[in-house]
Design a protein around this nucleic acid. Structure first.
Lengths: 190, 190, 190, 190
DNA sequence: AATGAATGAGTCTTCATTCAT
DNA sequence: AATGAATGAAGACTCATTCAT
């Protein structure tokens, strides 16, 4: 019998890769990265431990791919037409976009926050995290300063902090936390 | 040399216990709870591993005692004279008190936040965390509702979230983060 | 296109088999047998892992075939016209033949020596090694005893040892080692 | 009960360390470094796997310590009174010393030779091996050149090669190999 | 003849905890 | 009160080999 075609192999690979990524994200979010053994990921995904290493070089690479993949989605919401003249509605779009992701993919945010407090693991991702954070900060800062606010720097840092605070409280208590009301309170800070 | 009295022994014991607690907090904050071996704590504290287990039943108990000890300090700032009629200056006092602790003891906050995202460890502390959070929430909620704000529940949750956001951003970047300016922005939310 | 004939298939098969054998020898020599994964051999040879097992039952069989194949070449140089009356020039021919192989195929010698010290692997080959060694030893011993040397046994063992010593030092440092000068020193021992 | 004294601990440590080193040397010699699992060393030494790591940082460090320890012994035999004027009897002493060690500690030589052909492992030790080899080579070379031999370089390399050849053949067949007769043949090369 | 996904046994290593002294 | 040797369970990772296609 002839071997599978390249396309068939690709389908298998991309489906299984997605399965592993999803399973791992869910477990990392639930138990934390360090407390999730590769063996558990494999078991939950219904594959052998060895196969994981056929798809990802290491547990850390698996983590990295999860994060990077989501980051792209994340950044799609921060498209401004003119970086030197950021409009209020663009910031609002960004906020709304992220609140949407927060609702749709709380696991990712849980993982994201948990990693921020795990220095041994965080090192892997620090550069990417920083690059993104700085882009966001620059955009918001530009909005505040061109809109005529004084102390745009502090306002920017404050807004980012508020945003993370909301995120954390939401994922800790998605049912009880009043996300929609707080959304308006954030907008009021603009 | 006369043998030590019971009191002297107890002084030694409590001093050594404090030493272990401090050392452990510092290491947990720096490396994370799971990434800090008991052997390292013992080494840094200048004692043997065995002795650690003489003072604390387990690594988890050590963690627990660290957290509980700090909580008491923490709650000292939330003393209101009348829980049914909370004054603005009392809330401000609470905020300022906590910002002070944040500056003085960033390690504890780092540990506190990191544990929040480590469910396997968090379980130990969840009850205590909740009890405290609810006390604080009730107090703030009372302030908002007696002061005549509408939607005091959402406002309360928002304030708590903002507070944590600030805390996180400060401990991630204690030098760059404009803590004093943001303090005023928090007060403005009251 | 007409289908390939049986002969064409066999040509392909034996060419591919040779490719695998060569690739494997080169990698075994460079990294050692145990440190060379089958996957690497396949990759370097440009074929799939599965196909390797189509040609060779196991990694060990692959090794075995490499060694045995070279042994035949090796023994071609030890053809004496009369085993009961070995001539000096025949021994010299053998020495020169082997020095030539040593220069032309250092990888094989490297592998050969490395296996001699890997009992778990060596077991496979021990019989064949011994058979060959004994043939050589018998021939040399005959030369020494018929030529009238006393203690031909010790002289034989010495010569064989010297020969291996030279081989090892040459493959460890093919550029620096004075192979041609030492050749004469070996001849002087005859 | 009071803890053991420092001396008592030291006795325990050095005895157990020696036990592990001895056991490991014997197994490495018998099976090869790569084919000897740490678990087997532990089992043979009658200790737990974990304890091995209390004494040695890694399997590789264990190997390193074995080799380095023996090297010192080894070099004791190559003490010449004047490096610029090496006497024949000093070379003979060196040869005899090493033949003695060869007889007494064939395991070490087995390991030494096997490592020389295991590039992945050899890297660890290459520097130390080279340093020693160069010292020996320089000494012998000095002997040959001051004694008036021409082509002392080639003679030195030859002698070293012969010596290793003898070593290898002896450890492969300690009973059958005529070590004492060959000793005289080596001396004749001086 | 050929592919590479999949498995599982085996290897090194870490670390919380126990225990004899 | 104090030490550190010792254990054992668990975890990340590798790799020869099998097998469906």
């Amino acid at each position: 019998m002839s071997p599978r075609t390249k396309e068939q192999y690709e389908v298998i690979r991309s489906e299984k890769e997605a399965l592993i990524l999803d399973t791992a994200l869910s477990l990392f979010a639930k138990n934390g990265f360090l407390s999730t053994p590769v063996s558990l990921i494999a078991k939950e995904a219904g594959i052998s431990k060895g196969l994981m290493y056929n798809y990802f070089k290491s547990k850390e690479e698996l983590l990295y791919k999860i994060i990077i993949g989501k980051f792209e989605l994340f950044m799609n919401y921060l498209k401004v037409s003119d970086i030197n003249n950021v409009q209020k509605h663009e910031i609002i779009n960004f906020i709304d976009g992220n609140l949407l992701l927060l609702k749709q993919d709380p696991d990712f945010y849980k993982l994201y926050f948990s990693l921020s407090f795990q220095p041994s693991v965080f090192a892997l991702l620090e550069k990417d995290f920083m690059r993104i954070l700085e882009t966001i900060a620059a955009t918001i800062n530009n909005y505040y300063s061109t809109t005529g606010f004084e102390n745009s720097f502090a306002k920017t840092r404050f807004l980012l902090a508020v945003f993370d605070g909301i995120g954390i409280h939401y994922i800790m208590d998605p049912i009880g936390f009043p996300l929609d009301e707080t959304r308006n309170m954030i907008i009021n800070l603009l």
